[in-house]
Computed example of a mutant assay.
Amino acid sequence: MPKPRGGPKAHFKRWLINGIAIAIPLVITLLVLIVVIDFILGVLSPIVQGIIYVLPNDPPTTVVQLVTLLSLITFFLVVGVVAEYTPGRYISRRVHATMETIPGISTVYESVRRASSMLLDDDTEQFKDVKLVEFPHQDAYMLAFLTADTPRVVEEYVDNGGMVTVMVPLGPNPTTNGFIMHMPAERVYDVDITVEEAVRSIATLGVASSELGEEKLE
């Protein structure tokens, strides 16, 4: 194992940076979880209080909250299982279609549904491949994700030969933040980098860029 270079000052700086890089994501994740759980418990509070009022032995509030949360998770699991099989898939499509036709509610419902799908699905599965594009100006290159085939109407209006559609992601959340661009295929370059490596590099604001391509070499 190579001996770390530099004096005490360099060691202290490196240790401090590493500690911050490790601790801050953990702390933020815990805070988000606490806020989400607190919000859910607040929404379920009337139900919890009603259960405590009905039950004769006045069980502890914490126990009732836990049982209520488990019941809610079980409910979601049952709905998911039903939606997975026929006619569950048909019912699921009909529910979505019905909600999306209600004026004033359709926009909110569709936005929440798409956001929920992105949060619950594997974010990297929505991207087909990693590409390299010149952006935002010539001789400046950024990683981009190949997302879908370019709509034919775009190709016809531009009349610039074959085109590809890519997402040029922005940190620190590359899976949901970026620019959707329709570009000539000749200006999109192949690069031997996995989607996971690209996401990790952009999410760390370039800190993990030195690891790009290492999975191919192993």
Results as ranks from 00 to 15, higher is better:
residue 133 V to H: 14
residue 63 V to L: 14
residue 51 I to V: 14
residue 5 R to V: 12
residue 200 R to F: 02
residue 22 I to E: 06
residue 118 M to G: 10
residue 156 E to A: 14
residue 209 S to C: 06
residue 213 G to H: 03
residue 180 I to Y: 14
residue 202 I to W: 07
residue 19 G to D: 05
residue 104 G to E: 08
residue 9 K to I: 13
residue 86 T to Q: 11
residue 138 Q to K: 11
residue 74 T to R: 00
residue 39 F to D: 01
residue 137 H to S: 10
residue 130 V to G: 03
residue 48 V to W: 05
residue 132 L to K: 15
residue 55 L to W: 11
residue 134 E to H: 08
residue 212 L to D: 01
residue 58 D to V: 14
residue 138 Q to G: 01
residue 15 W to M: 06
residue 213 G to S: 04
residue 84 E to V: 04
residue 43 V to T: 06
residue 122 D to H: 09
residue 126 Q to L: 06
residue 12 F to E: 03
residue 136 P to F: 13
residue 8 P to A: 02
residue 73 I to K: 00
residue 64 V to T: 13
residue 69 L to S: 09
residue 142 M to R: 15
residue 124 T to D: 13
residue 63 V to S: 09
residue 192 D to F: 05
residue 144 A to M: 13
residue 189 Y to T: 04
residue 103 P to R: 07
residue 182 H to M: 13
residue 49 Q to D: 11
residue 216 K to Q: 12
residue 48 V to D: 03
residue 209 S to N: 12
residue 174 P to T: 05
residue 167 M to S: 10
residue 29 T to F: 15
residue 15 W to C: 10
residue 1 M to C: 03
residue 212 L to P: 02
residue 41 L to N: 07
residue 153 V to E: 13
residue 19 G to W: 04
residue 116 S to G: 15
residue 25 P to Q: 14
residue 50 G to P: 02
residue 204 T to P: 00
residue 109 Y to P: 02
residue 149 D to S: 07
residue 6 G to M: 10
residue 155 E to P: 01
residue 146 L to D: 02
residue 141 Y to P: 12
residue 150 T to M: 11
residue 175 T to Y: 04
residue 34 I to A: 15
residue 67 V to E: 09
residue 47 I to N: 01
residue 97 A to L: 15
residue 166 V to P: 09
residue 59 P to F: 08
residue 17 I to T: 12
residue 48 V to S: 06
residue 98 T to G: 07
residue 217 L to H: 14
residue 38 D to E: 03
residue 85 Y to V: 05
residue 120 L to C: 09
residue 202 I to H: 05
residue 4 P to A: 03
residue 136 P to K: 08
residue 16 L to C: 10
residue 205 L to N: 14
residue 127 F to V: 05
residue 104 G to Q: 08
residue 150 T to W: 04
residue 110 E to N: 13
residue 74 T to E: 00
residue 215 E to I: 05
residue 206 G to N: 10
residue 52 I to W: 06
residue 139 D to C: 02
residue 66 L to C: 02
residue 73 I to N: 00
residue 122 D to G: 00
residue 146 L to H: 08
residue 176 T to C: 06
residue 98 T to P: 06
residue 217 L to T: 14
residue 118 M to K: 14
residue 5 R to H: 08
residue 103 P to T: 08
residue 151 P to Q: 11
residue 30 L to N: 03
residue 88 G to D: 05
residue 47 I to W: 03
residue 194 T to L: 09
residue 213 G to P: 03
residue 143 L to G: 13
residue 95 V to W: 05
residue 216 K to S: 13
residue 214 E to R: 10
residue 180 I to V: 15
residue 30 L to I: 03
residue 189 Y to L: 14
residue 192 D to M: 06
residue 115 A to G: 04
residue 1 M to Y: 02
residue 123 D to E: 11
residue 190 D to A: 14
residue 80 G to D: 09
residue 68 T to Q: 01
residue 218 E to M: 11
residue 9 K to L: 13
residue 43 V to H: 05
residue 182 H to Y: 15
residue 39 F to Q: 00
residue 139 D to R: 12
residue 78 V to N: 01
residue 22 I to F: 15
residue 110 E to G: 04
